[in-house]
Amino acid sequence: MIRVLVADDEAVLRAGVRAILHTDPGIEVVAEAADGREAVELARAHRPDVALLDIRMPRMDGLDAAAELRRGLPSVAVVMLTTFDEDAFVARALEEGASGFLLKASDPRELVAGVRAAAGGAACLSPRIARRVISVLRGDRRFARYEQARAQVVALTGRERDVLALLAEGLSNRQIADRLFLSEGTVKGHVSAILVRLGADNRVQAAIIAYRAGMVDG
């Protein structure tokens, strides 16, 4: 069972997200929060697998909440609920350890799939904003140069590059394992090594480096 915390200051949106997630018998919403501070407190109490955080919330916004969860509960996958007008928050969200982004107006199937992907350790990017996220981060100094990204990727082993390419396509560890005929544990080990070699904090940052290096069509 995938345990989820939903945090948004709009009760109607929380109710909608809860209703959508409850259509999947493998997902359970264990807590709901109306602000970032409450989200952190409930996450500590319930230890969810995934935290869906609105970026703009009172008391503590989703970005600060993500930072606290990263420090105190690193096992919780944080996914930001966003809108098209919040590009400016993307870089900071990734710096604070966000596993991905989903549009508030996502198709219900996309929301469920995103939660499942995040719980499985995969990058979680709504298809409608994935390219926007990558575009925004092209100005970030860590991903500013094609040559730099290429140099980072070249330092990986051949198998690590295979794993990175599939990771950048949004595949989970299980899906990568099936595609490459490896065990899930072996893939997990490769992913951990890739993050260290690339200097990436999470799978989304690693995926962006793969895009910048030309490994995946962007």
Rank of each mutant, 00 (worst) to 15 (best):
R132P: 09
V133T: 07
V133R: 00
V133A: 06
I134E: 01
L137T: 15
L137D: 05
G139P: 06
G139Y: 04
R141T: 15
R141N: 07
R142M: 03
F143A: 09
A144G: 03
A144T: 13
R145T: 13
R145G: 06
Q148A: 15
Q148I: 05
Q148W: 02
A149P: 04
Q152W: 01
Q152F: 03
Q152T: 00
V153Y: 02
V154Q: 14
A155I: 13
A155L: 14
L156D: 09
T157N: 02
R159L: 14
E160A: 07
R161L: 08
R161V: 14
D162P: 03
V163G: 04
V163A: 07
L167M: 12
L167T: 13
L167I: 12
L167F: 01
E169M: 10
E169F: 02
G170K: 04
G170Y: 00
L171N: 01
S172G: 12
N173R: 09
N173Q: 08
N173T: 12
I176T: 09
A177R: 07
A177K: 02
D178K: 12
D178R: 15
R179T: 13
F181S: 15
F181L: 10
L182I: 08
S183A: 14
E184T: 14
E184H: 02
G185E: 04
T186Q: 06
V187Q: 03
V187R: 02
V187T: 08
G189T: 12
H190T: 09
V191Q: 08
V191N: 05
A193N: 11
A193I: 02
I194W: 00
I194V: 13
I194D: 01
L195C: 11
V196A: 11
L198Q: 03
L198G: 09
A200Y: 01
A200N: 00
D201P: 05
D201C: 04
